[in-house]
Design a protein around this nucleic acid. Structure first.
Lengths: 317, 317
DNA sequence: TCGCTCAATTTGTCCATGACAAATTAGCCC
DNA sequence: GGGCTAATTTGTCATGGACAAATTGAGCGA
C-alpha cells in the first residue's frame, strides 16, 4: 500500500508545511489577512514551495491560532503579533485563571474526557444531571466545563477529537433532557437560533435547557439562520422573544450590524435577547436588545417578562 | 396565515444589492471564483456601488445558488452557466423526479413543515418512529424527507428557517432514539464523523441510528474532525471501523485526497466506510475504502463484517 | 469494441500590489 | 472628566497575470 505517502513525514523540511488555503481553514484567518499581515508586520513569514506559493511551518500556524484566539477576546493584532508564543499562551491563561472554578465534579469529568473513558463519561454526566437537575447541571457543570475544555484545547492538553466527543455527549444529554420536558404552548414563545457563520450549538442548547424548565415554549431553529428568515420564523410561530447566541469568535461588527438590522425588521413588541461568550465584551448596549450577561440570569429575565406581560398574554391561540 | 411572502423588498434598486462577501457566504462560491467567472463567462455581471465595488442583484445570486447546486451534482460550470434560471431549475427537477417516492406519510410531514404546525409535526414524527421502528423510520421517512425538503428549498417552496426547524426536529428525535439504545461495548466499534468543512450532521445521525440497532458500539465525534484526529480517535477508542459521511456539496477532490491520506494513516485492519449523498457519484473506487451506496445496506455490511471477524473479535476488553 | 496514452481545454486557486473605509486610539480644548 | 477632531490601525476589495490539477477528446493498439 504505497499510495500517496503524505505520511507522518519524518522529513524535517518539506514535512508538514501547510499551504495558505489550509491555514485559512485551520485558523479562521482569511487569505487576504494572512498576506496583509505578512506585508505589514512581517509575520507570518512562510516559506515558498517550488511554484513560489506560500507554505507555512507548523509553529507559525500554531502562533496564528493563538493570535486568533486572543483577537476573539478583544486584543488587537498590532499589539500582540510581535510576542512569542509563550507570551501569547500566558496572556490566555491569565484571563482563563480568573474564570476558573475548581470544582471537583468538573475536574473529574475533565479527567474522563482525557482518558477516553466514554461509557464512564456518559454515566457520570447522566448522574450529575439527575442529581443536580437540569438548570444547575447547565450552570455548575456544563458552563465551567466548556471553559475548561476550551482552555485545555488551546493549551494543547486536549485534542480536537476529545473536545468533539465531549461536545457530542453534552449535546445528546441536553437534547434528551429538553425533549423530556414537553412544553404545552405556554407563553412566552421563544425563538432560538444564531446568525450565519455562528455554528456553536451548545450555547443554544444550554439556553433552551434553562428556558424549558421555566415552562417557556421554545422554537429551536438550530444555528446559522439568515436575518430575514429569523423575522419570518418569528412571525410564523408568533414568537414573543427572539434569542440569539454568539460565541467569542463571532466578529463584533457583524454582530452589531446584524442585530441592528434584525431589530429594525422585528415588531417592536417582540423582545430580542442575546447571550453567549461573545456578548460579555460588548461595551455599548444597543437599543431594544437585551444582553443576557450570564446564563444564570435567564430564569429571572423570564420572570420579568411575565410580570410585564401579565394579563395581556396571547394565551396559546 | 399570510406570512411567508418572500417580501420582494419594496425598493427596486439599492434595495437588495448584495456585496461580494455576502454572496460568497450565501452561495459557497469563493470571491476568487465569482471574479473569475465574471472575467471568463461574463456571468455574474454585478453592478458597482459608489466605491466601484461589486454589488449583485438578487436574481443573479439566485442563479448562482442554482449553479452551485448543479455543480455539486457533477455538472461543469462552462456547460450550464449560460442557461436561464428556468433551465437550471428544470435540470434539477429532472434528477429529483427520479428519486422521488410518493409516500403518503412523507407528504403529510412535508405539509406540517410548510404549515409551521410544530407540535403536530413533533407528534407525527414520534408516532412514525414508534410505529415503524428506528431503521424503517430512517429509511422510509427521513431519507426521502431529506430529498424532498432539499428540493422544496431549492425550488423556493420552503424557506431556510422551515428547513432548519425540520432538521432540528429530526436531530432531536434521532438522538433521543439513539441514546435509548444503550450499546454495551459489543464489536464492531464504529467511529462516526466527517471531514472538515462537512457540516451536515443528519447523515451521521442516520448512520448511527442504523448501527446502534444492529448492536454496534458507536463513537460519534460529530462533524468536521481533521484527519490526524480521526486517526488518533480511532486508536484511542479501538475502532474497528471508521465511518465518514459526505454531503453532495463536498468537493470530490478534497474527499479523495482526504480519504487517501486517512487510509494511509489508519491501521490496515481498521475498515473505512464512506456514505452520504456525496459518494454515489464517485466513479472510481479507492483501495481499502468501502462505499455505502445506500443507507439501507448498513445492516448487511455489519453482518458481513461480523462474518469475516467471527472468532477473532477483541470482545470488549 | 474496449482500454490506453497524450495533448488540448477547462477550471480553480494563488500571487502581487494598490486603494480605501470603518473602527480605534491619541491629542486637545473646554 | 467629557467630548471633539485627527491620526493610526486594520480588514476587505479590486485588477490582472500565472499556472497546476482535472477533465475531455483524439488517436491507436489489442
Amino acid at each position: 500500500m504505497t499510495n500517496k505517502q503524505t505520511v507522518p513525514t519524518p522529513l524535517p523540511e518539506t514535512a508538514a508545511l501547510v499551504p495558505i488555503g489550509a491555514v485559512e481553514r485551520d485558523t479562521g484567518l482569511s487569505k487576504d489577512v494572512l498576506r496583509m499581515w505578512e506585508r505589514r508586520y512581517h509575520f507570518p513569514l512562510p516559506q515558498r514551495d517550488a511554484h513560489g506559493e506560500r507554505v507555512y511551518p507548523p509553529d507559525q500556524v500554531t502562533k496564528l491560532r493563538a493570535l486568533k484566539r486572543l483577537m476573539d477576546q478583544g486584543h488587537r493584532p498590532g499589539k500582540i503579533i510581535g510576542m512569542t508564543l509563550e507570551d501569547l499562551v500566558a496572556l490566555n491563561v491569565d484571563r482563563a485563571a480568573a474564570l476558573r472554578t475548581r470544582d471537583r465534579d468538573v475536574d473529574e469529568v475533565l479527567q474522563l474526557i482525557g482518558d477516553h473513558r466514554l461509557p464512564e463519561l456518559r454515566q457520570r454526566l447522566n448522574q450529575l444531571l439527575l442529581s443536580k437537575g437540569l438548570q444547575r447541571f447547565v450552570v455548575e457543570i456544563v458552563k465551567p466545563l466548556n471553559v475548561e475544555v476550551g482552555e485545555a484545547w488551546s493549551r494543547g492538553d486536549l485534542a480536537i477529537f476529545e473536545e468533539h466527543l465531549y461536545a457530542e455527549q453534552i449535546q445528546s444529554l441536553l437534547r434528551y433532557a429538553i425533549s423530556s420536558v414537553q412544553a404545552r404552548g405556554n407563553p412566552p414563545h421563544v425563538l432560538l437560533t444564531s446568525f450565519p457563520m455562528e455554528q456553536h450549538c451548545l450555547g443554544l442548547l444550554m439556553a433552551e435547557s434553562m428556558l424549558v424548565v421555566e415552562g417557556v415554549t421554545c422554537i429551536a431553529l438550530g444555528t446559522e439562520t439568515p436575518v430575514p428568515d429569523i423575522v419570518r420564523a418569528a412571525s410564523a410561530h408568533g414568537a414573543d422573544i427572539v434569542a440569539l447566541s454568539f460565541s467569542a469568535a463571532y466578529p463584533e461588527r457583524q454582530a452589531v450590524a446584524g442585530l441592528r438590522e434584525l431589530r429594525a425588521l422585528l415588531p417592536v413588541e417582540t423582545a430580542l435577547w442575546v447571550g453567549g461568550s461573545g456578548v460579555s465584551c460588548h461595551r455599548r448596549p444597543l437599543d431594544g436588545v437585551v444582553v443576557v450577561e450570564d446564563i444564570e440570569h435567564i430564569a429571572s429575565l423570564v420572570a420579568d417578562w411575565r410580570t410585564v406581560h401579565r394579563g395581556n398574554v396571547h394565551a396559546a391561540d
